[in-house]
Design a binder for these strands. Sequence first.
DNA 1: GACTAACAATACGGTTGCGTCTCGGAAGAT
DNA 2: ATCTTCCGAGACGCAACCGTATTGTTAGTC
Lengths: 212, 212
Amino acid sequence: MTACGSASPDAPRQLGRPRDPKLDAAILDATLRLLADGGYTALTIEAVAALAGVGKATLYRRFPGKEQLVIEAVATLGEPPERVRGAGVRDELVALLESIRRKNDSSLASKIFPRLLSAGAENPELMRRYREQVLDPRRARFIAVLYRGVEQGLLRADVDLAYAVDLLVGPMVYRHLIRKEPRPGPELAARIVDDVLYALAPRRSCHSSEQT
Amino acid sequence: MTACGSASPDAPRQLGRPRDPKLDAAILDATLRLLADGGYTALTIEAVAALAGVGKATLYRRFPGKEQLVIEAVATLGEPPERVRGAGVRDELVALLESIRRKNDSSLASKIFPRLLSAGAENPELMRRYREQVLDPRRARFIAVLYRGVEQGLLRADVDLAYAVDLLVGPMVYRHLIRKEPRPGPELAARIVDDVLYALAPRRSCHSSEQT
DNA sequence: GACTAACAATACGGTTGCGTCTCGGAAGAT
DNA sequence: ATCTTCCGAGACGCAACCGTATTGTTAGTC
């Protein structure tokens, strides 16, 4: 996860002035900032250098070009998710969904998200890294909680958990990404979770007919 | 819906060679094509002119600049949706959802979609037109069918239909836009519709507890 | 047949960003 | 103290694209 051209342990740099690690951070941060409000193609190396307060040579010393720069920057977006343990399955799912909503209401990451969706078409590697670092870990958390839901008999044993995640996350992301008005409120997460859990719960045989 | 600089009926052009309407179509088509595989910022006027087989002057005679050009092009994406009438509410919803899946599996429009999501951040007008021409009509169809569902007692009378559309469309769009692997199959639409309809159906009071 | 505007092609100057390079200076290692 | 590399700043030539203007041709009107 260090910058591209960083010294490998096998060939430790000994001579001369060492690279300033703070500059790596400044460059990646500037990259994310510019990526957020301009998109991939609008992002220029010169703007990154200027915003980071860094010479272009310093930047090119670390990254071979825009593509690798953005890939490395995006890879830093992964974050340890907030802990909500202790609560029940239902409340934990609500908390996870709600954290998506809150994040999309303000953060840098939310602005970068649609940019990557577009840039990912030409840059599979870029999308892959983002998926691995950001999307997959979040997804794994959902799956884990849902699995506990199965164990506790809250969900049918035969439900496809990946599908269940789609049912939960899909509407929330859709609201933020596409149908932005009116802004979803904090009650949306609970609503989605309750409806989805109800749909996937073990069904008592008291309803007269099978599915239509 | 005609090109920007087209003659208005009030001031009919009489003198000189008339504009070739085929060129309007060629320009807009080329715009969409390039927008699909390059994105908004990557789209250049010169490339549009070249692909359309048109001189730059011809293009500038119709559109003042890139922004208006793209806006007009996107506005042509609206389409009369396939008719599935006659079937029941459930099957009609499945058909609507399935048409989203099919469209996203191949068409130009599906490639343009994420581009607009990104470009829309800087171009509210662009996003607005796309919403009006493409998204809103589709949404209206969902709402209409769902309303019939309410009338027929398939859905609770108090469900927020807009929310119901999110529950249906969200997971499908999410699958295509973000979680692309594995490619959703034709069975997904029915699965989503059945689960959502079940969750929003009038609930008989045979389950022991209220919502947790 | 004269007139006029649309047409394709292309030249034009201006702007922007690329990736490389050079400069003087600064920071550690020896 | 010396050596080596990193640092910020920015000049450099190159390429792409902008929006405009010119040129010769073409299509329709009068």
